[in-house]
């Protein structure tokens, strides 16, 4: 009990945990927003290329991006962005984290959306076109709503992975949840409570996301034919 007291109450150490939690959540939400934007953009470019043979250069660039990001460790990407790209810039370190994890997630999300769009029956696009919609109109009103629904379960997985991956942000000095637990542990010379408490908080977050997405999926269960 004494150890638990030391881990949380002495020196208001629970504030450290709360601050870490706040940063983890901020980074994750920011990265999700960036990731979805990048992912959607890339998935649309790639589908447009495959369907209409347009935007060859953009297609090659986005393919390269996906390959590079998926083929290198996220910690390395984070370090490159922080130590090389923003080396001299006076930039908020949380923002660096959001950017790095957003750029990383975008590559994975693009593959999720691509698979979702491709899983929509080709007849849907043809029907839309045959009624006089353009490719983009059909994509927006007909194909994407259905593809998005198919993408939801893997998208949920990606966010769960993302929230856990942000734990490496401590490496460049971002005060996120894992780092907070680590700091408390090193100050109290007791690893059990800080680390277990941190783990439980992650568990609550990830289970929460999973729940939310299950709810969303059910709400949209009419989408699939």
């Amino acid at each position: 009990m004494d150890n638990l007291y030391k881990s949380l109450i002495v020196d208001d150490r629970y504030l450290l945990i709360l601050n870490g939690l706040k940063n983890t959540i901020i980074i994750t939400i920011g990265a999700i927003i960036i990731g979805i934007s990048i992912g959607l953009f890339i998935a649309l470019i790639q589908h447009n290329y495959k369907e209409n043979k347009k935007n060859n250069i953009l297609y090659c660039l986005t393919s390269l991006y996906v390959k590079v990001i998926r083929g290198t460790p996220v910690l390395l990407q984070l370090m490159i962005i922080y130590y090389i790209i923003f080396r001299t810039a006076n930039i908020n370190i949380i923002l660096v984290g959001i950017l790095a994890f957003g750029i990383n997630s975008g590559a994975y999300v693009s593959e999720i959306f691509r698979a979702g769009i491709e899983a929509v029956d080709k007849g849907q696009m043809e029907a839309g076109k045959s009624l006089g919609l353009t490719y983009w109109e059909t994509m927006r009103y007909i194909v994407l709503p259905q593809g998005f629904k198919i993408s939801l379960p893997p998208l949920g997985n990606e966010f769960v992975t993302l929230i856990k991956e942000t734990s490496v942000a401590g490496y460049i000095g971002i005060m996120e949840l894992t780092k907070s637990g680590d700091i408390i542990a090193s100050r109290t010379y007791n690893y059990f409570f800080p680390l277990i408490i941190t783990a439980i908080i992650y568990l609550i977050l990830t289970l929460g996301i999973t729940r939310c997405l299950q709810f969303l999926e059910k709400g949209e269960s009419n989408v699939r034919g």
Binding site: G123, A127, G128, K129, S130, I142, P145, N222, V223
Partner: peptide
């Protein structure tokens, strides 16, 4: 323009292709 043409020329498919959502 293809989309203008397709407003004049309708098409019915064997597999209906109703919008499922």
């Amino acid at each position: 323009k293809r989309n203008h043409l397709n407003q004049k020329i309708g098409m019915i498919f064997q597999s209906y292709n109703l919008f499922n959502h």
